[in-house]
Design a protein around this nucleic acid. Sequence first.
DNA 1: CCCATCTTGAACCGATCGGTTCAAGATGAG
DNA 2: CTCATCTTGAACCGATCGGTTCAAGATGGG
Lengths: 196, 196
Amino acid sequence: MAGKKQFDIDTALDAAMIQFWRAGYADTSVDDLSRATGLNRSSIYSSLGDKDTLFVRCLERYATRYGDKYDAALSCAADRPLAAARAFFDITLERIADPALPDGCLVAQTVMGTPVLSASVAARAREAIGLQHTRLRAALKAGRLHDEAAESFATHLAAVNQSLAVMSRAGTSTEQLRAIVDVTLDALARTLAASD
Amino acid sequence: MAGKKQFDIDTALDAAMIQFWRAGYADTSVDDLSRATGLNRSSIYSSLGDKDTLFVRCLERYATRYGDKYDAALSCAADRPLAAARAFFDITLERIADPALPDGCLVAQTVMGTPVLSASVAARAREAIGLQHTRLRAALKAGRLHDEAAESFATHLAAVNQSLAVMSRAGTSTEQLRAIVDVTLDALARTLAASD
DNA sequence: CCCATCTTGAACCGATCGGTTCAAGATGAG
DNA sequence: CTCATCTTGAACCGATCGGTTCAAGATGGG
């Protein structure tokens, strides 16, 4: 209404999310967030909440944004389960390859910090991992995988997806990351073929 | 020579390693290390070095200790490559199941902290990941896997091994962790069988 | 032009950070 | 017992942490 301009909250949240994503909760100070968002220290508290609240908002934002993409990638699972799994991993691989985004994964980093994070934050990160597993299991069941195999592969695919976050930060090349998922996709392909 | 007693440096290093392993570098203060080791703040600096130096020592200790175990597990790779790979993962699974040790993995946690850690520390962690890959590739080649497959599977196995660190902190059960590696071992078994 | 409204920068708070110093105390050798 | 040696706890340092407050300034509506 008055005063200079209303800053764009979405843009600020994106910047904060990327900062947390890159450096993690412990290594991100409120001054870092101020620099990253371009917002004043007081503005952050007045419109984005304190550090803990803001972190949870960023975590939700991250989980929703990429959760939707994972859902979209898996949407063809009933018809072509292998292609769905490949598209699933492509979401992660493209995210890692994007120079505008950090390596790693905000959820993976948060989960790794479980012992020192607040219980609510740790629970929310665990929830995101659980959701990923549910998503994958549903997709694999939709593709003609029997319950047992769907359960195993859902867990395996979720884990391999998280491994990409670790390996990308270890300097592993795009080709090597692709090799990691290709072994998994081959295994899935053979299991799918065997159940025909 | 004089004074009360010479404290046991190995015991202190173990305690410091576990503290770093549990909480990570950023979330471990020198006071935490003092409490964990039972050593006085000044004693830490005088006999274990500053925080950065001590962390590197703990990282080396961790890499050596479990590196040796991984080597031992893989030693039968030439005769029974599949059993070797299974024994390799068992090292990690048993470590995670040990209630006296933290979940996760010091190397994985350090690699995830790459963007905010000193260059030398980050490089040392990357080195540990690279060594793991080398170790696995050599073992798989010793087992009758051709170069290309050995390279792919070495990368894949190293990644899946790291994924256990993430998933264990996400509250994944022992059975589910086992399912993750079983998918990988099945894939390896089929590839080994195919090359016969 | 004036005023109400919003943003901003800067200061301040208590707490904790990594790192250093040093006197007091405990010990074993002589 | 005495003395040299080593460890210990505590204090101190400057810096930074998360969090809060507030006066100054910028803006647009009337």
